[in-house]
Design a protein around this nucleic acid. Structure first.
Lengths: 141, 141
DNA sequence: TATTGTTATACTCTATAACTATA
DNA sequence: TATAGTTATAGAGTATAACAATA
């Protein structure tokens, strides 16, 4: 059983790499930039240090990234009224729009190949999706 | 039905992004470097221009990448006996070893969360894996 | 003193343009 | 001429170290 799950993990990883490549954008926003916007949307306004830690980049890198994103009007910087050292970052409407557009584009890139599968395959994927979500969600916390 | 599949594509993309992050390495090799080694392993020896096109980078970028990989002993450069302009790149044993090690590490990172799922979830993922492989494979050709 | 964030500097990876060598 | 690859140069994105301001 353990052996089974190790093998399953390897095969699943292959599939994930393949699917990720299928939808990869390679333009627009960097991977970290997109992830940061998504985090701001999912979790609401956050501090710079908090974001840097969540995305796994250094504080100076996040400073630079936020400067770029703010320059593009995708995030908003505000002083924290209760802590003069801190800044609070939040997603702007333009940032949310961009995320929506990206998600639509990525889904569209999956939709073509998905249409080529037969109904049984689609049903199996659909049935596994909640389990895969739980698997992916483990790290979110 | 079409609407269903569009929705399925969006949810699947979310899961793929999450799982990709779960296994991401952020060290070792760049994304393109790993993909290039994997391509050499999957498809055998190839020319530089061919690799650049497959990985979606410019020819000069691939020149630089191959120089780095060759410097690390991960790929081998050889002159093409039938075309004096061309070079033929191939994966070395060390390159293959590195790929194996990376796959093991990535699978290990999935194995933990996978162990937290109940058996029914694991079975559903297992049942969907061939379908997901077919989905991911569509672009490979 | 510790924490939040910025600035200075350097390294990696990428791109476009201009070049060399072979077909 | 066209094609395979390299070199020159510049820009994005990242890191570590040193700094300023506030708690």
């Amino acid at each position: 059983m353990d052996q089974n799950r190790t093998d399953l993990a390897a095969r699943l990883d292959d599939v994930v790499v393949g699917l990720r490549q299928l939808t990869s954008t390679r333009a627009d926003l960097s991977l970290t930039a997109a992830a940061t916007l998504a985090t701001l949307q999912r979790c609401g306004p956050a501090r710079l240090t908090e974001l840097a830690s969540t995305e796994g980049v250094s504080q100076p890198s996040m400073t630079a990234l936020i400067a770029r994103l703010a320059g593009q009007g995708l995030v908003d910087r505000a002083a924290d009224p209760r802590d003069g050292r801190a800044v609070v970052l939040s997603l702007t409407d333009a940032g949310a729009d961009l995320l929506t557009r990206r998600r639509t584009e990525r889904a569209a890139r999956l939709a073509g190949p998905l249409a080529d599968l037969d109904d049984a395959d689609v049903e199996r994927i659909e049935a596994a999706l909640p389990a895969l979500s739980r698997l992916a969600g483990v790290l979110q916390h």
